[in-house]
Every structure is written in C-alpha cells, then in structure tokens.
Design a binder for these strands. Structure first.
Length: 263
DNA sequence: CGACTGCTCCAAGTTACATCA
DNA sequence: ATTGATGTAACTTGGAGCAGT
C-alpha cells in the first residue's frame, strides 16, 4: 500500500447524530400510541432529551386543589356553552368494562352562542402543578384519566385535553431547539476535523511529490523516522531542511513507513 | 373480504388573549 | 398610556386507526 492508495481511497467520515431509543416499556396509559401504529417516538424516549424528573402520584392521596374564584366563574360561563354541544355516549373502557363518558366534541368551539370573544383561562398554580405532574407520569391521557383529571381540577375534559396537546407541542419545540444546538456543535466539530484532514492531505501530497523527486535514490534509503517524523535518506540528503518534514503526526504513518534507526 | 362511514385522537399550525418590560 | 414581545389557552385542519355496516 502506497501513497497513491491512500490518496485514492479517500477519507470517508461517517456523520450521524445518534438518537438512542430507550427500550423502556410504554406506559399503560399510552395505549393510544400502541393502538395507532404511527412511527412516532415519544421525545422522552430519545436521547438527548429533557429530563422530566421523578414522577409523582398525582391521582392518589386526594390532593386538595384550591381553585380561585375567578377561575370558577369563568369556567361556569364557558362550560355551559360547550357542554350544550356534548353528548353522552357509551364507550368501551380499555379494561373491558363499559364506562359512561361525557364527550365533548373537539371540533366545537367553547365560545358561547352569542359569539362573544373567547376568554383566556389562566390556570392556577395548583392546576398547573397537577397537570405537570400528570404529564411527567404520562404525556398522553386515556379518556378515563382525562375525566379524572378534569374532575380533580374542576376543568372541562376538553381543557385538560388541550393542555396536554399544547404541553406536548411545547416539549417537542424545546427538544427541537436542544437538538438544533447539538447538531450545530457537531457540525462545527466536523468542520474543524475536515479542515485538519484537508491540511494533512495536502502535506501528504507534497510529500509524495517530493518523494518522486528522490526516486533516483535507493528505496531502502528513504525512511521516515517514527519519533521525529523526518525522512532519513541514510545520511545522503540534508535532513534539517528536508521537505519531507511533517508538521503533524500522520494517522497514516505506519502504513507506508518503517521504523528507522537513523536517529 | 374489501369499501365505506363515522368517531376519536393527535400533530401541526394558527389565532387571540393576558401579561410584562 | 402605549406598544411590542412573549407565553399559552383555545381553535382549525388534516391524517390515521378502529369499529360497525
């Protein structure tokens, strides 16, 4: 294997940002995801990811929620209009039993019939906290969980649903931002590596050029010293100002040189 | 068995309101 | 008081899975 081989082979750098998929089981609450065979990976199943800390038992222990009056009043206003569009439907529960669920049509606006401008609800700290905790536990809700959360927080199921949708979107946005930064750094590193390799290639090419100049010398007399990385011609050519001098250690050194005892 | 339909859920994008500097 | 930026609740749209016909 000679210089030509090295030069012709080319340098192949494999680029790739690894996304390690956690092999953790999908939580029972995520059977929606299981049911649908979308190639969708939850973001908390990928590395790097935003860690969401330890999960808490949200539904247990009867945590008391102090709902503000403002909240309650705004709820009562909009809840009437939205529930007027709801229907009661018997739906098979995932456990097999049948539960009666109040269904709120997701396509129906929560605005009241008069078309008054929509009031924006501000969730209380307690509500946000419970929702966050629940989200940490499972980023999607089944109807039962949604209903339970809604009752616990004195919200409409639709509001809980929307909150989870928005929360997932925010999480994804954040993750995208993190990924972008990661790729940016990776790109910079690869640029530097590429630059360095180009430089090294140039040096090797010039080395090859000069080597052909010295072709008249017996091949055995041209050796590269592994320690000082200078070409030694057996004392027949000046070594201090030799064009064979390499600035950097070459990765390919061992492939075309032999250790020399010249030094 | 495949086609069709209705329902449901979700992601992505958008709108609009509330708050703050 | 006004204004632009920001956060986010609520909405719209379109796609996909599933069950029933």
């Amino acid at each position: 294997m000679g210089l030509d081989d090295i030069c012709n082979t080319g340098l192949c750098l494999g680029l790739g940002i690894g996304c390690l998929v956690k092999q953790e089981n999908i939580s029972q609450s995520d059977h929606h995801q299981q049911k649908k065979k979308k190639p969708f990976l939850k973001h908390d199943q990928l590395f790097p990811s935003l860690s969401l800390g330890p999960s808490h038992d949200v539904h247990g222990q009867g945590e008391s929620i102090d709902l503000h009056q403002r909240q309650a009043s705004s709820l009562s206003l909009s809840a009437v209009s939205s529930f007027s569009n709801s229907s009661v439907k018997r739906q098979r529960d995932f456990g097999g039993e049948e539960v009666e669920l109040e269904r709120v049509c997701s396509r129906v606006s929560d605005e009241d019939e008069e078309g008054s401008p929509r009031k924006k609800l501000k969730l209380t700290k307690e509500q946000s906290s419970v929702l966050e905790d629940s989200f940490k536990e499972h980023s999607t809700l089944n109807p039962k969980q949604k209903q339970a959360l809604a009752e616990q927080l004195n919200l409409r199921p639709r509001q809980v649903e929307v909150w989870f949708q928005n929360r997932r979107a925010r999480t994804k946005l954040k993750q995208t931002e993190v990924d972008r930064e990661l790729l940016k750094k990776c790109c910079e590193t690869l640029k530097e590596e590429n630059k360095r390799l180009h430089k090294e290639l140039q040096e090797l090419k010039s080395l090859k050029l000069t080597a052909s100049y010295y072709m008249h010398l017996p091949a055995a007399t041209l050796t590269l010293c592994p320690s000082c990385e200078r070409v030694d011609n057996g004392g027949e050519a000046p070594s201090t100002s030799s064009p064979f001098t390499m600035g950097q250690k070459s990765h390919f050194f061992s492939s075309f040189t032999h250790p020399s005892a010249a030094c």
